[in-house]
Protein backbone atom coordinates (compact mmCIF):
# COMPACT_ATOMS: atom_id res chain seq x y z
CA UNK A 1 0.00 0.00 0.00
CA UNK A 2 2.74 2.34 1.04
CA UNK A 3 4.45 2.17 -2.33
CA UNK A 4 1.18 2.63 -4.15
CA UNK A 5 0.52 5.87 -2.31
CA UNK A 6 4.08 6.91 -2.89
CA UNK A 7 3.76 6.09 -6.56
CA UNK A 8 0.51 8.00 -6.87
CA UNK A 9 2.04 10.98 -5.11
CA UNK A 10 5.02 10.88 -7.45
CA UNK A 11 2.65 10.65 -10.36
CA UNK A 12 0.89 13.81 -9.26
CA UNK A 13 4.20 15.51 -8.75
CA UNK A 14 5.13 14.74 -12.31
CA UNK A 15 1.76 15.60 -13.78
CA UNK A 16 1.34 18.98 -12.12
CA UNK A 17 4.15 20.97 -13.70
CA UNK A 18 3.15 19.56 -17.06
CA UNK A 19 -0.44 20.79 -16.58
CA UNK A 20 0.61 24.29 -15.54
CA UNK A 21 1.22 25.38 -19.12
CA UNK A 22 -0.22 24.25 -22.41
CA UNK A 23 1.56 21.06 -23.30
CA UNK A 24 0.62 18.33 -25.73
CA UNK A 25 2.17 14.99 -26.46
CA UNK A 26 2.57 14.02 -30.11
CA UNK A 27 3.11 10.29 -30.43
CA UNK A 28 4.60 9.55 -33.81
CA UNK A 29 6.26 6.91 -35.95
CA UNK A 30 9.95 6.17 -35.92
CA UNK A 31 11.54 8.19 -38.70
CA UNK A 32 9.68 11.48 -38.18
CA UNK A 33 12.20 12.69 -35.58
CA UNK A 34 13.82 15.46 -37.61
CA UNK A 35 10.50 16.51 -39.13
CA UNK A 36 8.80 17.33 -35.85
CA UNK A 37 11.93 18.88 -34.43
CA UNK A 38 11.31 21.56 -37.05
CA UNK A 39 7.50 21.54 -37.04
CA UNK A 40 7.07 21.99 -33.29
CA UNK A 41 8.81 25.34 -32.74
CA UNK A 42 7.17 26.71 -35.90
CA UNK A 43 3.74 25.78 -34.57
CA UNK A 44 4.54 27.11 -31.09
CA UNK A 45 5.26 30.48 -32.67
CA UNK A 46 2.06 30.45 -34.72
CA UNK A 47 0.05 29.49 -31.64
CA UNK A 48 1.67 32.19 -29.54
CA UNK A 49 0.90 34.80 -32.20
CA UNK A 50 -2.70 33.67 -32.46
CA UNK A 51 -3.58 33.17 -28.80
CA UNK A 52 -0.76 34.71 -26.79
CA UNK A 53 -0.24 31.38 -25.02
CA UNK A 54 2.89 29.30 -24.81
CA UNK A 55 2.70 25.69 -25.84
CA UNK A 56 5.27 22.94 -25.59
CA UNK A 57 5.02 19.83 -27.70
CA UNK A 58 6.46 16.64 -26.29
CA UNK A 59 7.53 13.96 -28.74
CA UNK A 60 7.65 10.20 -28.59
CA UNK A 61 8.96 8.15 -31.51
CA UNK A 62 8.90 4.43 -32.17
CA UNK A 63 7.35 1.93 -34.57
CA UNK A 64 3.79 3.01 -35.37
CA UNK A 65 2.13 -0.17 -34.07
CA UNK A 66 4.19 -0.16 -30.90
CA UNK A 67 3.09 3.41 -30.26
CA UNK A 68 -0.57 2.58 -30.81
CA UNK A 69 -0.29 -0.23 -28.29
CA UNK A 70 1.39 2.04 -25.77
CA UNK A 71 -1.46 4.55 -26.15
CA UNK A 72 -3.99 1.78 -25.62
CA UNK A 73 -2.09 0.90 -22.45
CA UNK A 74 -2.24 4.46 -21.22
CA UNK A 75 0.47 6.55 -22.91
CA UNK A 76 -1.23 9.95 -22.64
CA UNK A 77 -0.99 11.07 -26.27
CA UNK A 78 -2.98 14.15 -27.31
CA UNK A 79 -2.31 13.73 -31.00
CA UNK A 80 -1.00 10.91 -33.11
CA UNK A 81 0.88 11.34 -36.37
CA UNK A 82 1.23 7.83 -37.74
CA UNK A 83 2.17 6.18 -41.00
CA UNK A 84 -0.58 3.63 -40.93
CA UNK A 85 -4.35 3.98 -41.02
CA UNK A 86 -4.78 0.67 -39.20
CA UNK A 87 -2.89 1.87 -36.17
CA UNK A 88 -5.34 4.73 -35.64
CA UNK A 89 -8.25 2.35 -36.27
CA UNK A 90 -6.93 0.32 -33.36
CA UNK A 91 -7.21 3.38 -31.14
CA UNK A 92 -10.77 3.98 -32.37
CA UNK A 93 -11.62 0.37 -31.58
CA UNK A 94 -10.17 0.93 -28.11
CA UNK A 95 -12.60 3.81 -27.60
CA UNK A 96 -9.96 6.54 -27.52
CA UNK A 97 -11.26 8.44 -30.53
CA UNK A 98 -14.24 8.43 -32.90
CA UNK A 99 -14.54 5.72 -35.51
CA UNK A 100 -14.97 8.36 -38.25
CA UNK A 101 -11.71 10.11 -37.40
CA UNK A 102 -10.82 10.32 -41.08
CA UNK A 103 -13.52 12.99 -41.51
CA UNK A 104 -12.01 15.27 -38.87
CA UNK A 105 -9.33 16.70 -41.16
CA UNK A 106 -9.08 17.38 -44.90
CA UNK A 107 -7.88 14.78 -47.39
CA UNK A 108 -8.94 11.79 -45.30
CA UNK A 109 -6.95 13.15 -42.34
CA UNK A 110 -3.71 12.72 -44.24
CA UNK A 111 -1.76 15.99 -44.53
CA UNK A 112 1.12 14.46 -46.49
CA UNK A 113 2.18 11.28 -48.19
CA UNK A 114 5.25 9.37 -49.26
CA UNK A 115 6.21 6.07 -50.86
CA UNK A 116 8.70 3.28 -50.37
CA UNK A 117 11.85 4.23 -52.29
CA UNK A 118 15.46 3.10 -52.42
CA UNK A 119 18.72 4.45 -51.17
CA UNK A 120 21.90 2.91 -52.61
CA UNK A 121 25.62 3.31 -51.96
CA UNK A 122 27.86 5.86 -53.64
CA UNK A 123 27.71 5.78 -57.45
CA UNK A 124 25.22 2.91 -57.29
CA UNK A 125 27.87 0.16 -57.81
CA UNK A 126 25.27 -2.60 -58.20
CA UNK A 127 23.28 -0.61 -60.74
CA UNK A 128 20.00 -0.80 -58.83
CA UNK A 129 17.17 0.84 -60.74
CA UNK A 130 13.95 -0.95 -59.90
CA UNK A 131 12.33 -3.69 -57.80
CA UNK A 132 13.63 -6.43 -60.14
CA UNK A 133 17.21 -5.64 -59.17
CA UNK A 134 16.45 -6.32 -55.51
CA UNK A 135 15.91 -10.05 -55.97
CA UNK A 136 19.24 -10.58 -57.70
CA UNK A 137 21.52 -13.00 -55.88
CA UNK A 138 24.31 -10.43 -55.50
CA UNK A 139 22.15 -7.77 -53.82
CA UNK A 140 21.62 -7.40 -50.09
CA UNK A 141 18.54 -5.42 -49.08
CA UNK A 142 17.85 -3.70 -45.75
CA UNK A 143 14.40 -2.81 -44.42
CA UNK A 144 12.75 -3.30 -41.01
CA UNK A 145 10.50 -6.07 -39.76
CA UNK A 146 7.09 -5.85 -41.47
CA UNK A 147 5.48 -7.41 -38.42
CA UNK A 148 6.40 -4.46 -36.21
CA UNK A 149 7.10 -1.56 -38.54
CA UNK A 150 4.49 0.28 -40.60
CA UNK A 151 7.30 1.49 -42.83
CA UNK A 152 8.26 -2.09 -43.74
CA UNK A 153 4.62 -3.06 -44.23
CA UNK A 154 4.48 -0.49 -47.04
CA UNK A 155 7.66 -1.95 -48.49
CA UNK A 156 6.13 -5.41 -48.40
CA UNK A 157 2.90 -4.21 -50.01
CA UNK A 158 4.73 -2.10 -52.62
CA UNK A 159 6.88 -5.05 -53.68
CA UNK A 160 3.78 -7.20 -53.83
CA UNK A 161 1.92 -4.59 -55.88
CA UNK A 162 4.85 -4.25 -58.28
CA UNK A 163 5.01 -8.01 -58.83
CA UNK A 164 1.25 -8.21 -59.35
CA UNK A 165 1.48 -5.43 -61.91
CA UNK A 166 4.34 -7.11 -63.74
CA UNK A 167 2.79 -10.59 -63.74
CA UNK A 168 -0.67 -9.50 -64.78
CA UNK A 169 -2.18 -10.09 -61.35
CA UNK A 170 -0.76 -13.56 -60.71
CA UNK A 171 -0.75 -13.83 -56.89
CA UNK A 172 1.49 -16.91 -56.77
CA UNK A 173 4.18 -15.20 -58.83
CA UNK A 174 3.86 -12.08 -56.67
CA UNK A 175 4.38 -14.14 -53.53
CA UNK A 176 7.42 -15.84 -55.03
CA UNK A 177 8.85 -12.42 -55.81
CA UNK A 178 8.32 -11.13 -52.27
CA UNK A 179 9.78 -14.30 -50.83
CA UNK A 180 12.89 -13.83 -52.94
CA UNK A 181 13.09 -10.26 -51.70
CA UNK A 182 12.86 -11.35 -48.05
CA UNK A 183 15.60 -13.90 -48.67
CA UNK A 184 17.96 -11.06 -49.61
CA UNK A 185 17.52 -9.23 -46.29
CA UNK A 186 20.39 -9.88 -43.86
CA UNK A 187 18.73 -8.21 -40.87
CA UNK A 188 15.24 -7.10 -39.89
CA UNK A 189 15.30 -4.28 -37.35
CA UNK A 190 12.16 -3.46 -35.38
CA UNK A 191 11.85 0.15 -36.52
CA UNK A 192 12.54 2.18 -39.64
CA UNK A 193 15.31 4.18 -38.04
CA UNK A 194 17.17 1.15 -36.78
CA UNK A 195 17.23 -0.12 -40.36
CA UNK A 196 18.66 3.20 -41.46
CA UNK A 197 21.51 2.99 -38.94
CA UNK A 198 22.16 -0.57 -40.04
CA UNK A 199 22.58 0.61 -43.61
CA UNK A 200 24.28 3.96 -43.04
CA UNK A 201 26.32 3.45 -39.84
CA UNK A 202 27.17 -0.22 -39.97
CA UNK A 203 27.59 -0.35 -43.76
CA UNK A 204 25.37 -3.38 -44.17
CA UNK A 205 23.46 -4.04 -47.39
CA UNK A 206 23.52 -2.59 -50.90
CA UNK A 207 20.15 -0.90 -50.76
CA UNK A 208 17.90 0.48 -48.06
CA UNK A 209 14.16 0.52 -48.66
CA UNK A 210 12.30 3.08 -46.61
CA UNK A 211 10.02 6.06 -47.11
CA UNK A 212 11.20 8.44 -49.81
CA UNK A 213 11.25 11.11 -47.11
CA UNK A 214 13.75 9.11 -45.10
CA UNK A 215 15.96 8.41 -48.13
CA UNK A 216 16.09 12.15 -48.81
CA UNK A 217 16.87 12.98 -45.20
CA UNK A 218 19.58 10.33 -44.94
CA UNK A 219 21.23 11.32 -48.20
CA UNK A 220 21.50 14.83 -46.77
CA UNK A 221 22.58 13.73 -43.26
CA UNK A 222 25.29 11.45 -44.65
CA UNK A 223 26.34 13.69 -47.53
CA UNK A 224 29.96 12.52 -47.11
CA UNK A 225 28.98 8.93 -47.85
CA UNK A 226 27.47 9.92 -51.19
CA UNK A 227 24.32 7.81 -50.97
CA UNK A 228 22.12 7.98 -54.04
CA UNK A 229 18.31 8.13 -54.00
CA UNK A 230 16.59 5.79 -56.44
CA UNK A 231 12.88 5.99 -57.17
CA UNK A 232 11.40 2.75 -58.51
CA UNK A 233 9.11 2.72 -61.55
CA UNK A 234 6.08 1.82 -59.45
CA UNK A 235 5.41 2.25 -55.78
CA UNK A 236 2.64 2.36 -53.23
CA UNK A 237 1.15 5.57 -51.95
CA UNK A 238 1.79 5.69 -48.21
CA UNK A 239 -0.64 7.89 -46.32
CA UNK A 240 0.40 9.57 -43.11
CA UNK A 241 -2.82 9.88 -41.12
CA UNK A 242 -3.19 12.17 -38.13
CA UNK A 243 -5.79 12.33 -35.36
CA UNK A 244 -6.55 13.96 -32.06
CA UNK A 245 -6.81 11.33 -29.33
CA UNK A 246 -10.03 12.91 -28.13
CA UNK A 247 -10.39 10.85 -24.98
CA UNK A 248 -7.00 12.00 -23.65
CA UNK A 249 -7.23 15.55 -24.99
CA UNK A 250 -10.64 16.07 -23.40
CA UNK A 251 -9.35 14.87 -20.07
CA UNK A 252 -6.37 17.20 -20.24
CA UNK A 253 -8.28 20.11 -21.78
CA UNK A 254 -6.03 20.26 -24.82
CA UNK A 255 -8.55 19.59 -27.60
CA UNK A 256 -8.29 23.04 -29.11
CA UNK A 257 -4.52 23.27 -29.29
CA UNK A 258 -4.27 19.66 -30.49
CA UNK A 259 -6.63 20.38 -33.36
CA UNK A 260 -4.76 23.56 -34.25
CA UNK A 261 -1.48 21.64 -34.19
CA UNK A 262 -2.68 19.13 -36.75
CA UNK A 263 -4.30 21.86 -38.87
CA UNK A 264 -0.93 23.60 -38.96
CA UNK A 265 0.40 20.65 -40.94
CA UNK A 266 -2.03 21.59 -43.74
CA UNK A 267 -1.04 25.27 -43.79
CA UNK A 268 1.40 26.50 -46.44
CA UNK A 269 4.07 26.96 -43.79
CA UNK A 270 3.53 23.44 -42.48
CA UNK A 271 3.50 21.97 -45.98
CA UNK A 272 6.72 23.77 -46.82
CA UNK A 273 8.44 22.22 -43.79
CA UNK A 274 7.10 18.83 -44.83
CA UNK A 275 8.41 19.20 -48.35
CA UNK A 276 11.78 20.25 -46.98
CA UNK A 277 11.88 16.87 -45.26
CA UNK A 278 11.08 15.15 -48.55
CA UNK A 279 7.44 14.37 -47.84
CA UNK A 280 5.06 14.84 -50.76
CA UNK A 281 2.31 17.37 -50.09
CA UNK A 282 -0.93 18.52 -51.72
CA UNK A 283 -0.66 22.30 -51.43
CA UNK A 284 -0.39 23.36 -55.11
CA UNK A 285 1.96 26.29 -54.52
CA UNK A 286 4.37 24.30 -52.37
CA UNK A 287 4.15 21.42 -54.82
CA UNK A 288 5.24 23.65 -57.68
CA UNK A 289 8.11 25.16 -55.67
CA UNK A 290 9.59 21.79 -54.74
CA UNK A 291 8.82 19.70 -57.83
CA UNK A 292 12.53 19.15 -58.54
CA UNK A 293 12.94 17.11 -55.34
CA UNK A 294 10.22 14.63 -56.23
CA UNK A 295 10.77 12.45 -59.32
CA UNK A 296 7.73 11.18 -61.20
CA UNK A 297 6.57 7.75 -60.17
CA UNK A 298 3.57 5.60 -60.86
CA UNK A 299 1.73 5.41 -57.54
CA UNK A 300 -0.89 2.79 -56.78
CA UNK A 301 -3.05 2.85 -53.67
CA UNK A 302 -3.97 0.30 -51.06
CA UNK A 303 -7.62 0.50 -52.19
CA UNK A 304 -6.85 -0.12 -55.87
CA UNK A 305 -4.54 -3.07 -55.46
CA UNK A 306 -5.57 -4.71 -52.22
CA UNK A 307 -9.15 -3.54 -51.68
CA UNK A 308 -8.42 -1.59 -48.52
CA UNK A 309 -6.72 -2.07 -45.17
CA UNK A 310 -9.36 -4.37 -43.69
CA UNK A 311 -8.74 -6.85 -46.45
CA UNK A 312 -4.97 -6.51 -46.08
CA UNK A 313 -5.27 -7.14 -42.37
CA UNK A 314 -7.35 -10.26 -42.89
CA UNK A 315 -5.44 -11.76 -45.82
CA UNK A 316 -1.87 -10.57 -45.36
CA UNK A 317 -1.12 -9.42 -41.85
CA UNK A 318 -3.18 -11.75 -39.67
CA UNK A 319 -1.48 -14.57 -37.76
CA UNK A 320 -0.76 -17.25 -40.35
CA UNK A 321 -1.61 -14.88 -43.21
CA UNK A 322 0.34 -14.45 -46.46
CA UNK A 323 3.02 -12.33 -44.79
CA UNK A 324 3.69 -15.03 -42.20
CA UNK A 325 4.07 -17.75 -44.79
CA UNK A 326 6.53 -15.65 -46.80
CA UNK A 327 8.37 -14.11 -43.89
CA UNK A 328 8.97 -16.92 -41.43
CA UNK A 329 9.48 -19.91 -43.68
CA UNK A 330 12.34 -18.49 -45.62
Amino acid sequence: MKTRILAAALGLGLALPAMAQDSILNVSYDVSRELFTEVNPAFAKVWKDATGKDVTIEQSHAGSSKQARAILEGLPADVVTFNQVTDIDVLAAGGLLDADWRKAFPNEASPYYSLPAFLVRKDNPKGIKDWDDLVRADVKVVFPNPKTSGNARYTYLAAYAYALDKNAGDATKAQEFVKALFANVPVFDTGGRAATTTFAEKDIGDVLITFEAETGGIAKEYADKGFVRVTPSLSLLAEFPVAVVTENARKKGTEEVSKAYLEFLYSPEGQRILARHFYRVNDPAVKAETAADFPDVKLVTVEEVFGGWDKIKAEHLAEGGILDTLFVNQ
Partner: peptide, 17 residues
Amino acid sequence: LAAHDLQILFALPGIVL
Protein backbone atom coordinates in the same frame (compact mmCIF):
# COMPACT_ATOMS: atom_id res chain seq x y z
CA LEU B 1 -6.58 3.15 -12.35
CA ALA B 2 -8.24 4.85 -15.29
CA ALA B 3 -11.39 5.44 -13.25
CA HIS B 4 -9.33 7.14 -10.57
CA ASP B 5 -7.21 8.99 -13.08
CA LEU B 6 -3.98 7.47 -11.83
CA GLN B 7 -1.14 7.36 -14.30
CA ILE B 8 1.30 4.58 -13.39
CA LEU B 9 2.75 3.42 -16.71
CA PHE B 10 4.49 5.80 -19.10
CA ALA B 11 5.25 8.06 -16.14
CA LEU B 12 7.65 8.13 -13.22
CA PRO B 13 5.73 5.62 -11.02
CA GLY B 14 5.93 2.91 -13.66
CA ILE B 15 9.65 3.44 -14.17
CA VAL B 16 10.24 3.41 -10.41
CA LEU B 17 8.14 0.27 -9.88
